[in-house]
Each structure stands twice: as C-alpha cells, then as structure tokens.
Nucleic acid binder design. Structure first.
Length: 785
DNA sequence: CTGGAGGATCTTTTT
DNA sequence: GATCCTCCAG
C-alpha cells in the first residue's frame, strides 16, 4: 500500500499528471536509441524488460536483479508511452515491496511517479476495487476491514451460539480453516462437504456461512474477502470485469510463486483481454505454502497462458561462488522444480562456516562473539543478520546482545498496530467514524472499566438483534429505559454523549487534536497512567506515537484505511544494528554476513511441517534454507545445538539433514567448534559424512520425524493437504474423545496428589483429591494411581 | 461487576 | 515464560 495519503482518499487515476511530450524520450526509445535506463542490464534482463507484449514468465533466481528488472520494465512501459501510469496493474505481496518499487521507478525516470494508482499489494488493490463496487458485493463502500483479532472474536460469538465447546473447537482453528477456504476461492457453498464437517461436529460449513452473513450485516470484510469478494464481483458482473480488463493494458506480478488460488484466478481473469501479463518469481523461493500459496501456479504458467515466453535470470550479482554452490547443492535435493543454474562473476570468497554447540545459549554466545569481532574489524552491523526458523529462537540472542550491549533490531516482530493499546485507541476512532462498527464498539464499551459488564452487553446484543440494528444504536435506545441499573445506565449514557460530542468537534479541529481529546476524555490515557505495571509507560509512549503518525494523513478516515492494510510501521532507523528476524521475513533482503542458527532436526526442518505436509513440507523447509543461505553476500555461518530449551524443557536434537546436504567443497567446519557428547565433529570420516556419528540417519528420509510422518500416512491419518481423508475419521475421533478413565478410579495428579474420580464430562474429570479437595482437571493431567 | 488466583495452552512462518 | 481463560470471593 502506498503511503501517499492522496491514494487513500480514493483519488482517480490522475492520468493528467503524466504527459510524455512528443519527440521526447518516448520517441527516442521508439527510434531504437537505447534509453538510459537500459544501460547496465545483461541480455536476459534486457529481454525481460523489452518483451512487453504477450504473457511472460521471468524466472528470477536469488540475487539476479529481479526488482531492477521489474522497475525498469515499468519505466520502459511508461517511457515508450505504451501505457499511462493508471493503465498498469502492478501487484506485490508486501507493502515494503510496493513502496520500494515506487521509489525506484521514481529514481529511474526522475522525480516522483504520479498516478500509479494500481501499484500495490493484492490486498490493497482488492480493497480499492471492492470499495468502488461495494454494493455489488453486498457491502457499503465504507465497509470496515477486520483483522485476525476481530475475526476470531466474531467467530467465538457464533461458535458459542451454536452451543459448541470452545475448548474442543477453538475459534482460532476455524479461523484457519476459513482463511484456507478463502485462499482457495471457496465460498461457503463450495467447501467440500467433508472439510466443512471436520470442524465442530459437522457444523463447520454452517458456521462459515453464518460468519459470512454476519460480516455483511456488520458491513465488514476480513482479509480473505478482500480478494475473494472482488473476484466474485468480477465473475458475477461481466460488464465491470470488462471495464477493468480494458483499463489494465499491462500487468506485472511480483513473487508469483507465492500466489494462492484466488489471486491466481483473479489475475487470470483480468489478463484475459490484453494477455500482457508478466509474472516474476522463483519457484525455489516459494515458502508460503502454509498460507495457501501454490507453487503450481508458477510451474504451469506456460500451460495457462499459451504462447508464453519464459526468461531465466541466472546471473547472480550478490553472492560468492561458495555461497551459491552450497545453496545450489542443497536445493538440488528438491524434486519438482523448474531448475536454474546460478552463475556469479565474483571469484573469491570464503567457504560457509559450520559449527556445533552444546546448547542454544552457547550458540548465542558464539554468534555474539563473532559479531563483536566483525565490529572490531570495522564491519557495519547493519550488514549482518541472524535468520532464525521460529521466533522463539530470538530470545536467546536478545538476551545475549543485551548483556553484551550489542545493538540489534528485530524485524517483523510484534507489530505496532497489533498492540493492545493501539487497537483500543483505534477502536475509539473507528466508532467515531462509523458508529455501526459493532466489533469496535464492543471492544471499548468497557475499556477503561466503567461498570458495563458482560450482562449489560448481552442485553444490548439481544436488543440490537431484535430491532435489526447496530450495537451502538441499541445502546442508545436502552440508555433511555430502566433496563440497566442506575449506575450502568449513567455511565453508558455518559459514553454515548461523549461520542456525539466528539463527533461534533470533528469538523472544527485537526484530527490529531481530536484523537488526543478522545483518549483523554474517555479516560483511556488515565487508565494506563494509573497502571503500575512495567510496560504502562511504554504503552503511553505508543499512544503518543500513534497520534504522531496520524499527522501524515489528511483525515481520520484515511488514517484508518491505511492502518487496516499496512500493519507495519516503517521507521527508517539509521543506527548501526544487527538485524534479527525469521527466515520468512528475510526474503528479498541481503546482508554481507548471515548467521543461520538452529539447524536441527525438528526445528529446521520444522517437525510440524513434516508431520502435516510430509514430503511437500520438507521441500518447503528446504527452500526456506535456500532462501536463508542466498541472503548472504560474503559469508554465512550455519550452526546447530545439541540441546535446546523448548517449552521450558530441555530437548536433545540431531543436526539438521540439510547440513548433510551441503556440498563439502563449499563448507568449512569450524575448528573451534566444541566437541560434545563424546563425539568430535569436524573430522571427515571415511564414509564422507561429517556428522556420521551424530546423525545415524544419513539417508535423507530416514530421520525420526520423517518416519513418523510416513507411518501416519500409511495408517491413513494424514493430513491437512489431503482433505478427502479427513471426513469420517477425524470427526469420529474427535467426538469420541471421551476419557479412558472411569468414575470411582483412584488417580494421581502432579500438583494435587491422589484423588478419586467423582464425575466425568468428556475429557474433563471431577476429582475429590485427598489433600487438595474437589477440582476439575483435564484427563491428560492425571495418571492412574 | 471487578479483580485476583490459578489452570490450561501454547510457540512456524503473515497480507 | 507468557498469555488467555475460568472460576470464585467480595
């Protein structure tokens, strides 16, 4: 999403801003003289830029100048006057990518590009289209966008209304299913019966349908809807579709390997007319299968678009030959790739360094030492990064860096707009702008505490439903009656009056000032000021920051729209700091020195990935490893620990199978690497495997996790990716999940000691403990005495 | 209705 | 270890 506030206001394409002059650059390019922006491109890159018409797939390996090609291509289209800015659709996955593209086009053609209305993320473009035609999707044009949190809260209400046990059927799980369905383009009526039945005793489909209805009533859309609904709108309204097909003369898609089914269908529909679609991607960097991305989309591009050209970018400008060699050797273990061979012209450089450690803390110490060493040698910390598989790994590093006083930054960590205080404040603003936003109103009706508890809110809900109106209006009505206790009634009318007061002030003052007034008068600021906990101060600071960031927007509405789509705040830090992030968020970045810790079976490849998706899961993990290594320009350090604390419990792990897959020629084992467990690492045994002693499972698919996954498959218990099997089995297993215990049995509980079972409800046991008295406990916490 | 205590659950990745 | 949730006393 663009950070240009004008965009938010829904400004029209702004074609007038861009007027190539006859005889100018356009004519020059047409006449064959090489335009300046083409200089320095290699032949493949140049072909990718100049092949403007017809379907084109650019397979861009890591570090091959993908962004450069994309932006140059855009500039080329503009310069040769093939299209106005408003006639080009350019989609990316992240806001960052969109922003970067916009900036770089600006640099290429000099000055800021105006009118690139359709450059943005899938989601932001989806919203833009959906708002224009909201009524065709059963919404009003000012519909609100739910984030995951709202989504789950709403689902909880519906689930409870269906009388399902929240414990057994977590809303989170259903939210995951619904997201998955939406990613695959499945509206409630299209979900395969078996899948819909797998949740909530067969009620999954029903609840999904009801959820969709509720969204319409709330005048809201969730993330998945932004695309699914705009796709459906196109499918059901050929005239509108035709308008957009005509409008988009050229289409550009970044990170094509990450598109899911909806995105794919959406793109294909829009490209049908012009056929001028250029998709750029790298099948080896597809790492978002878990959220619905289909590598298949890239693998079958040529089938989908007959006559498509394919251009491979294989000249790498980033890494040393050792880094490329190691990465290529690793990824060669994957089947089902399109295949690329990366070349580099760099011919020196060090091998990758491999190290083993006793535990995660030692690993963090070693990397901390390395970083200090690099710093002493005048290296910039900004050019270094630690890439972890799972975010819990970050803690060890943060702890270590704090003790060392080594500056670091976490990229992609907990997001600013997801913090509680920010979401609360936003809810106030949302209610101000649209009082019918029930979810927002419910969020703040009793925050800070004003004596309006669950019972009162329930009454309002009931009243709202009876009168087919919103919660806010129901509250207004009930505040006039004797429905509530005097105290409750008083504070409710106070709140409602505050809102009408604020709404009146809205026109008379800057929105930032109003925001401050709201936070003060509502008592929200006070609430945190009174709070004694350690983070209260930080929260107040965040609230200030929130108001500050509103300044960049013309009005409150523009700001709210921005926030629902752009969940990150890009504070451009200039300080010199080590970068700490997950492998996923590292895609697209590069660093001189990269540390890749935690290469252990079970963690990387992640056990869950193997369990749930078997071989496909393993290959995605391997691509993740490939992404990790190829982030490095000069040096990569891979390490593993024998012991790691997970869940506050020590676990022993074997070195990752990926380590064995790295070609020896490109890897050095650190001589300082401590020997451990009685084995010395670093010696190359006769058989060639450096970790033969440690890793008895040199056969790639013989490790414990894989074996488990395979056994499960044979037993037919799999798995999310093979939905047809789910039907009877899972449902049967879950509903039949009564406990193996019987009434009257004597049991033992870790905390409460011995007791007798007095009652059973599903997997919950009522137990009379000898010492601790009567308790209700889950059966998994007790054993037979 | 509020607040505290204690139990349960969880940590893969995100627009 | 942290956070969410439920239950219970005031």
């Amino acid at each position: 999403m663009s950070s240009d506030p004008l965009d938010m206001a829904g400004l029209e394409d702004g074609i007038a801003h861009f007027e190539p002059k006859p005889g100018g650059l356009a004519a020059r390019a047409a006449a064959g003289a090489a335009a300046p922006y083409l200089k320095g491109l290699n032949p493949e890159q140049r072909a990718a830029v100049e092949t403007t018409d017809g379907p084109l797939l650019v397979l861009a390996g890591a570090g091959t100048g993908k962004t450069r090609v994309l932006t140059t291509r855009l500039a080329h289209l503009l310069h040769t006057a093939k299209a106005w800015p408003g006639q080009i659709l350019a989609v990316t996955f992240t806001n960052k990518a969109a922003r970067e593209m916009k900036d770089r086009i600006g640099q290429l053609i000099g000055g800021v590009v105006e009118g690139m209305t359709w450059l943005g993320t899938f989601h932001s473009i989806g919203v833009k289209i959906l708002r224009r035609h909201a009524e065709l999707a059963g919404l009003k044009s000012d519909f609100s966008i739910l984030d995951t949190d709202d989504q789950i809260r709403l689902l909880k209400q519906i689930i409870a209304a269906h009388g399902l046990d929240e414990k057994r059927w977590p809303a989170r799980q259903l939210a995951g299913h619904i997201d998955g369905w939406k990613n695959r383009g499945l509206t409630p009526d299209k979900v395969p019966a078996g899948e819909a039945a797998a949740y909530g005793n067969g009620k999954g489909g029903e609840i999904y349908a009801e959820y969709q209805q509720r969204l319409k009533i709330l005048n809201a859309a969730d993330f998945g809807d932004l695309l699914l609904e705009s796709l459906r709108m196109f499918q059901e309204n050929p005239d509108v579709l035709a308008e957009y097909q005509r409008r988009f003369k050229y289409m550009l898609v970044d990170e094509y390997q990450d598109t899911n089914v909806v995105q794919y269908l959406w793109l294909r529909l829009l490209a049908q007319q012009s056929q001028n679609i250029c998709c750029v991607g790298d099948d080896d960097q597809s790492i978002y299968g878990w959220r619905g991305a289909e590598v298949d989309n890239i693998l079958r591009f040529e089938k989908d678009f007959p006559g498509a050209k394919v251009i491979r970018l294989e000249q790498n400008y980033r890494s040393t030959p050792h880094i490329l060699g190691a990465a290529s050797g690793l990824i060669a273990n994957n089947e089902g790739r399109l295949g690329k061979t990366l070349r580099t012209e760099i011919n020196d450089g060090e091998k990758l360094t491999l190290r083993g450690h006793w535990d995660g803390d030692e690993e963090a110490r070693a990397i901390g030492d390395d970083l200090e060493g690099l710093q002493r040698h005048g290296k910039n910390l900004n050019d270094t990064a630690i890439l972890v598989r799972a975010s819990f790994q970050m803690r060890a590093f943060e702890d270590r860096f704090i003790t060392l006083g080594l500056p670091y930054r976490v990229i992609g960590g907990p997001r600013f707009y997801e913090r509680q205080e920010i979401r609360d404040a936003m809810a106030y603003f949302k209610v101000l702008m649209s009082p019918d936003n029930d979810l927002a109103f419910e969020r703040i009706i009793n925050v800070p505490k004003r004596g309006i508890g669950d019972t009162s809110v329930k009454k309002m809900h009931a009243h709202a439903r009876r009168n087919q109106t919103s919660l806010f209006r129901a509250a207004q009505m009930l505040a006039e009656t004797d429905e509530f206790t005097p105290k409750t009634r008083k504070s409710l009318s106070d709140l409602l009056m505050s809102f009408s007061r604020w709404r009146q002030m809205e026109t008379g003052m800057p929105h930032t000032e109003l925001a401050e007034i709201i936070l003060d008068e509502s008592g929200y600021t006070q609430m945190w000021q009174n709070n004694k906990s350690a983070d209260a101060e930080g929260r107040l600071e965040n609230l200030k920051e929130l108001v500050r960031s509103m300044q960049e927007f013309e009005n409150m509405a523009g700001f709210l729209e921005h926030v629902s789509l752009v969940m990150d705040t890009d504070t451009q830090e200039s300080d010199d700091k080590v970068n700490l992030m997950t492998l996923h968020s590292a895609k697209g970045l590069e660093f001189d020195t990269v540390f890749l810790p935690g290469w252990e079976e079970g963690l990387f490849p992640h056990q869950r990935s193997l369990d749930e998706n078997g071989r496909a899961g393993l290959e995605e993990e391997r691509r993740l490893a490939y992404v990790g290594i190829t982030r490095a320009k000069q040096q990569a350090y891979i390490s593993f620990a024998q012991n790691r604390r997970i869940h506050n419990q020590w676990q022993t792990a074997l070195p990752s199978r990926f380590i064995d897959e790295l070609p020896e020629a490109h890897v050095d084992t650190d001589p300082m690497s401590t020997s451990y467990g009685g084995y010395s690492i670093g010696g190359f045994g006769e058989s060639g495997s450096r970790f033969e002693d440690l890793s008895p499972f040199s056969n790639t698919y013989a490790t414990p996790g894989w074996q488990r996954a395979k056994e499960r498959k044979q037993r037919g218990e799999m798995m999310r990716s093979t939905p047809h099997i789910i039907e009877g089995e899972l449902v049967a297993r879950d509903t039949a999940e009564t406990t193996a215990f019987e009434k009257g049995e004597r049991i033992f509980h870790q905390k409460f000691g011995y007791g007798i079972i007095t009652g059973i409800d599903g997997n919950k046991l009522s137990i009379a403990f000898e010492k601790a008295g009567d308790k209700r406990v889950l059966d998994s916490f007790v054993t037979r005495a």
